[in-house]
């Protein structure tokens, strides 16, 4: 489960009436350029998954969220991609 595995779906669940597709990135984002490119590929994989009959047979009527859950602060380019793709970014909160 990470952006490095560009061809897999990390998690697909139904939550609060939404189909929620999650990307988990528990490692850091280095090297940043490579990870960013992998994230783009992974999002394309998620988009294709949304069109598969296997997905549609069960979730076609549900609104959909894609979320990126990361344990380390992502580079700015990742934030930009998330805004551009309407992906919800869930990152660690700094308590200080």
């Amino acid at each position: 489960m990470s952006v490095e595995r560009t061809e897999t779906i990390d998690a697909a669940t139904a939550r609060d009436g939404y189909a929620v597709l999650s990307i988990h990135q528990f490692d850091d984002w280095e090297p940043a350029d490579e990870r960013v490119e992998q994230l783009r590929h992974k999002l394309a994989t998620y988009e294709r998954f949304l069109a598969t009959p296997r997905y549609l047979a069960h979730f076609h009527a549900l609104p959909v969220r894609i979320e990126l859950v990361t344990s380390s602060p992502p580079p700015e380019e990742v934030r930009r991609i998330c805004r551009q793709w309407n992906v919800e970014l869930s990152e660690p909160v700094d308590d200080e």
Binding site: H60, V64, R83, N86
Partner: peptide, 19 residues
């Protein structure tokens, strides 16, 4: 109002909202 690109998941959500 949709600020980013209307990718497939946004399209599905809009479809569900319209229904």
């Amino acid at each position: 109002l949709i600020a980013g690109q209307v990718r497939t998941h946004v399209e599905r959500t809009l479809r569900a909202a319209f229904a």
